[in-house]
Design a protein around this nucleic acid. Sequence first.
DNA 1: TAGTTAATTAACCAAACGGTAAAGTAGGCA
DNA 2: TGCCTACTTTACCGTTTGGTTAATTAACTA
Lengths: 117, 117
Amino acid sequence: MNGGASVLDAAFAALADPTRRAILSTLAQGDATVSELAAPFAMSLPAVSKHLKVLEASGLISRTRSAQFRPCHLERAVLDEVDDWIQEHRKVWDERLDKLDEHLKNLQRGEEGRDGK
Amino acid sequence: MNGGASVLDAAFAALADPTRRAILSTLAQGDATVSELAAPFAMSLPAVSKHLKVLEASGLISRTRSAQFRPCHLERAVLDEVDDWIQEHRKVWDERLDKLDEHLKNLQRGEEGRDGK
DNA sequence: TAGTTAATTAACCAAACGGTAAAGTAGGCA
DNA sequence: TGCCTACTTTACCGTTTGGTTAATTAACTA
């Protein structure tokens, strides 16, 4: 039921940092170089470089070379996987809440019985 | 443009751990106690307890008391916020890719000019 | 060739993380 | 009252994370 979660590990971990999310937001408006991405932050270049390495390792971005620049580029696939996980769980969640709602309407009180294994 | 990101910080960080995602999956099928949630894992009770504390702090779950049990319960709101962030970025992403596509069709070559600030 | 710009790598540090074992707390139950 | 059950809290430990500065690599430019 669970085929390869390490992508999600890295993706969620990458998304957990506000600096990295801001970088992704910037990048959503177009490719950018490391210096350009670093500009808005009160943070050294190497720090941003590390964030980009994390993002690249997660697969959320890719980097190419253009002379001495390393333009960064967003990649959709991993964000799609993250979205898939969330949608899947929201679905089950919803169904479950519907059932619970129905259940409550039927019982109208706490029978205490979670459906044991 | 960015009002309060700390919820996302905590939520993404919480989701970054596979054990915690598994706990959420279990919980999606119904509320459960700490011991029940811990059962599938080769991990001590305190470890699971910590994970639950992280999940609770992120707002992804809530916990009540029922005698000596602490049944855990999924909360939708935060997952919805996470979903919102992702949808927002997928949207911009898509628009941008569409524009790029169009742009490429118009130019058919690398004019090298990123639209500078 | 020497110098400048762009970015990464290396070494280091403090704080956070994920786990442990052991002790403490709180609520049934005999 | 005293014990069992269900959990949490408290050290403690090794690893990872996010940042720093300094040194290095790579490519353009004079």
